[in-house]
Design a protein around this nucleic acid. Sequence first.
DNA 1: TTCGATGCAAATAGTTTGCATTCTA
DNA 2: TAGAATGCAAACTATTTGCATCGAA
Lengths: 166, 166
Amino acid sequence: MARTGGAKDAGSAAWAPPAGDDDPVEAVLDLLRARGGRVTTSRRVLVTALFGGEDHRTAEALARAVQEVAPDVHLSTIYRNLEELEALGVVVHAHLGHGPATYHLASELHGHLVCEVCDATIEVPLAVFAALEAEARRRYGFVIDPRHFAVLGRCSSCAGATQERG
Amino acid sequence: MARTGGAKDAGSAAWAPPAGDDDPVEAVLDLLRARGGRVTTSRRVLVTALFGGEDHRTAEALARAVQEVAPDVHLSTIYRNLEELEALGVVVHAHLGHGPATYHLASELHGHLVCEVCDATIEVPLAVFAALEAEARRRYGFVIDPRHFAVLGRCSSCAGATQERG
DNA sequence: TTCGATGCAAATAGTTTGCATTCTA
DNA sequence: TAGAATGCAAACTATTTGCATCGAA
């Protein structure tokens, strides 16, 4: 569990899919059952979608994906299930600037740089934040969690364009 | 693609109150006039409130402050004026985690560390972000703007409490 | 057969917008 | 007196919640 700069886990431990050829979807569903939860169609389809598509999807995008298979699943059910999966440590959500939160598997640890101009999102290893982490800890005893909120700014092309204008 | 709102004027240069004994409120109102804008009661009172009270106030808090002097000023007017003042570079807003945005004078440059547990907000000099800035620029050519979004995490006391639990 | 999960509608929070009216310059 | 700014209501986005019903264990 070596963590960048010795940071501790915030929240519940991040869950990682089992190694080997076990189906990660079933593994998550087992986790749900072990908690006294029930495995419903919407949950099975949502978890499948999470492992299947791209990460950084909003609740709405996930709902659309789920509804291709199970059209009656309501958006509020998606929210409730994402909340449950987050409590289990299977998914995390991140805020990439304004707009809706995005969800991705907790096993994919990274921070985010988001361009304020063109909305480009760069996934960055947590190591990028190591120095900030050390500095915040040294000065304030503050332990940063660089995963939850993106760091905004300007991507290389937009920063260049701005610079020219002075 | 997922364009949330429009990319407005990403911000003129930060405006700083004139040195010397000029009234900074009048200086801002002059700025407004110079733009072809008009100086109304709500604007005068809002700008006065911005220079008078504490920083990091939400639109709602500012509305309450304004309404103590001018009770009829509507919240939507506050939003519209804050937007105008932001375009002029007089104020900036920051998102300190979930919840409403907070506004403060652009002349007060700093970043924010916000505790996810107890909501404590630490104003930090931008120097704290220097290493992250260098790293983001070196690796990705990305120029961070550490003022707009807070960096979340755990303050010293809440981090300590977590650590004990393991 | 129980109680957890769902669908739906409605509530919520924060912010924005349309429009007729008011008031500054 | 032109047109910028306002008050108000309503729309809007993202998310949460109450409640009757449904269905997994």
